[in-house]
Design a protein around this nucleic acid. Sequence first.
DNA 1: GCATGATCATGC
DNA 2: GCATGATCATGC
Length: 450
Amino acid sequence: MHRGHNLTKYMAYDPTDRKSIEVRAKALVGKSLRQALEGLSVVHEYHGRGAFGLFLESFYFGIHPGNSSEPDFKEAGVELKSFPLKRSKKGLVAKERISLGMIDYMSMPSETWETSSFLKKNSDLLLIGFLHESDQDFLDYLVKIAELWEFPPEDIEIIKEDWKKIVAKVRVGKAHELSEGDTLYLGACTKGADSTGRRPQPNSKEMAKPRALCLKQAYVNAIIGRTLDGAEAVVKDIGQLKKSASFEELVAARFERFKDKPIDEIHTMLGLGLVTPKPSKDHYAKLARLMMGVKGKKIEEFEKAGVVMKTIRLEQDGKPKESMSFPAFKYKELVKETWDDSTFKDMLERRFFFVVYQRDEKGELRFKKVKFWTIPTHDLEVEVGSVWEETVQRIRAGKADKLPGQKENLVAHVRPHARNSRDTDEAPDGKRLVKKCFWLNREYVGKTLI
DNA sequence: GCATGATCATGC
DNA sequence: GCATGATCATGC
């Protein structure tokens, strides 16, 4: 078998019919491509990233869409997207984002959401999720998800806002400042194996990195959660969706009535009891969730979007009382990472949601404001990057007890993060040291709020 | 006053 | 039992 060989004659399915496509797709669930195409001796030349998808198109669905602006199943209006899953402690998660087509900086500004090439191609997706195993041939990957996916209305509202944010930047000649952290579900992710390629953009001489529109990893995880647990109702007509405020505005609006109110008054407003003399360390985080109208510890909208909530307490002078902690790392695992795919970089690239409290002149703590924030590229790549590299170097050199302190860098430092001094972790040299994590400097956190 | 080390309280 | 977000406490 070779590329271009038409197998559709073996298939009792109609690639122009949505229902038929779905039936054929669903038949893949629980099988590998090799099993699904049983009986055919398969010799192929496909390999590397995207091999699964190309093979699936040609030999399972018998289509050859190429790089068209039309959906892959043109007549049915369905775009085929296969994507890898991987195992995590909690179950299956997305291995990466789902890319939905390169951004054409020059033509995008003249589009509206309704007429966008994005919507034209991607409003109706056939999602095929397969379990990626690094030691297997892609023909043996098991298909876990096969789902016709139209975006639920509440999601499409957010995606629309995301899309508009991206276009807005491109329009004003700021394509080079695009960042995946700008948006929630739909992201502008960098494309191209080497990071050197650049493209022209309108209204600026600056060249911009090539980027594609993508469903961000956190959102793909939300899709996986929904489809593996059984599908929800989906929207029938994307054009009918009504307008609403953006996700971030909606979230911020929930806090509006609490602005500048002292803690005890907020307690009253929320129908809580009196403020205890010594509130627990996560009391203000809990209060923040309650102000948002969320009961549990998880905030579903934030989980989907990969947004991280952090509470910040400011003193009278407006400076944060504390630096900002992150999960403790394991010395031996940290030194195996590279900065670009490090756990900490991954964490910092997310969108943050700060809930800010401040002491007034009488010393009374009040809710001040909320703020969505993404770390500027320079601060991440140059400042945090160097702290990270220095940390790894010192651990490798057996100096895990002397990691970069707050005075060494303006943005980040390393410091203990453990239950107590006996809560230790083994360094590569065998010494046991108290668990530590990366912190964002107190002073720096203060500056982000201005 | 601030950096640094140490620890608390919660919830899974 | 432990990770986690957050804050306390000490000493320079």
